[in-house]
Amino acid sequence: MKEKWAAHDVPDLHGRLAVVTGANTGLGFETAKVLAARGASVVLAVRDVGKGKQVAARIADTVPGADVGVQDLDLSSLDSVRAAADQLRTAHSRIDLLINNAGVMYTPKQTTRDGYELQFGTNHLGHFALTGLLLESMLSVPGSRVVTVSSVRHRQATTDFDDPRSERSYRRVPAYGRSKLANLLFTYELQRRLSGKAETTSVAAHPGIANTDLIRNSPAALRGLFTVFGGLIAQSPEMGALPVLRAATDPKVQGGQYYGPDGFQENKGHPKQVESSEQSHDTDLQRRLWTVSEELTGVAFPV
């Protein structure tokens, strides 16, 4: 029986640069740690630089010789995204991996600094803008990839991208699913635009149900389930990071693919290629979201 894909399958990454958003905790931290251990130069793109430096030191303690830097990035502020992209382009001549991992989940109704609903604005618009602003540094880099982290929750999402400020209504669970659906629509539309024109590919992944800090804003009933049955219904951040790592580093991965756990309902397990919802493959919806995102962020892609 073929051994299941695991962290030791990540190939040697010396000479490659990876930018990981939201790398202070959870999936982002585990992803960054493995990439550094395999030789990549890693930039932790985080909102709290102080914590980011502590995390960089933790990785250096466990990975002798690790090359880990920290970049200030607040995805809920388009000004911060632009500043971070400028600094990254100045500091690095090329980017091999951009891992759009950071996110918020099930938050009470709030807005970004630019006035958009917080989950959609952070999880999708912030990453859309960051990718567009960094893509020029990736297009000619062989094997470069944009990996965007979605969720199994995208399957229950409805689409309402005409109300980015949630002025008509707001429910935190559907809003989260909508932002994760947007991640997939973006991934597939970006791959179509890149195909045959660049070295870069666009891939998506999801961690299943991972026991990370994101659970803190969940409804009380869900938090209770995690407290009592967490070990049964959720997996560790280390396991949750594996689909992201595979999407980012497996040489066999192709643009437009989606990776998640291989267990029951993709909740837990080792990473494999999985299928996303029919709605996520709606090309009209992909193009519509792209147009809306360009208008809301003011960022035009070089493809």
Rank of each mutant, 00 (worst) to 15 (best):
L88P: 00
H281C: 09
Y188C: 03
R38M: 09
G15Y: 08
S150N: 12
S77H: 04
L184M: 07
N101R: 04
Y188K: 04
P237R: 08
D162Y: 10
Q265I: 00
F161G: 05
P243F: 01
R216I: 09
K109Q: 10
L130R: 03
L245E: 01
L285V: 08
Y258S: 03
A182P: 00
A248R: 01
I233S: 00
P64E: 09
G126F: 08
K51C: 08
D67T: 12
D162H: 10
N211K: 06
A234W: 01
A37I: 03
A248S: 11
E117P: 03
R165Q: 15
M1T: 14
P243L: 08
A40C: 09
I209W: 01
R47L: 11
L97S: 06
G255L: 11
V49M: 07
M138F: 02
L139D: 04
Q254K: 15
T122V: 15
T227I: 05
P237A: 14
E275F: 09
V43K: 02
G26Q: 06
R172T: 06
Y170C: 03
G208I: 03
R47G: 10
F29T: 01
E238H: 05
T90A: 15
V173M: 09
P142C: 04
L185F: 01
G269M: 03
G224Y: 05
A6Q: 10
D74E: 15
K197I: 02
A23I: 06
P251I: 14
N217R: 00
L225C: 10
S137M: 07
V292I: 15
A32E: 11
G255Y: 11
P11C: 10
E3H: 11
I215Q: 06
T131P: 00
H14Q: 15
V55W: 06
G50Y: 08
V141M: 06
G298T: 05
L139S: 07
M105G: 03
S277F: 02
G132D: 12
R171V: 00
F128L: 11
A221S: 13
S41P: 03
V19S: 07
E266S: 13
V63K: 08
V81E: 02
A45H: 04
L194C: 00
G224A: 14
P207F: 00
K180I: 08
W5H: 04
H154I: 12
E189R: 12
G260D: 04
L285P: 15
S41F: 12
V141A: 06
K252T: 14
L88Y: 04
A198N: 02
Y116C: 02
T159E: 11
T212C: 02
E266T: 01
S150E: 09
T31N: 10
L245N: 00
Y170Q: 05
G143V: 11
K33W: 09
R178N: 01
N100P: 00
L135P: 06
S76Q: 12
S93N: 14
G103P: 05
V81L: 05
S137Q: 15
T62I: 07
F120K: 04
V20C: 08
A205C: 07
S41H: 15
G240S: 04
S150F: 07
A6G: 12
R153Y: 14
Q257R: 11
T159L: 09
G143L: 13
R168W: 04
P11R: 11
M138Y: 05
Q279K: 15
L133A: 09
L27T: 07
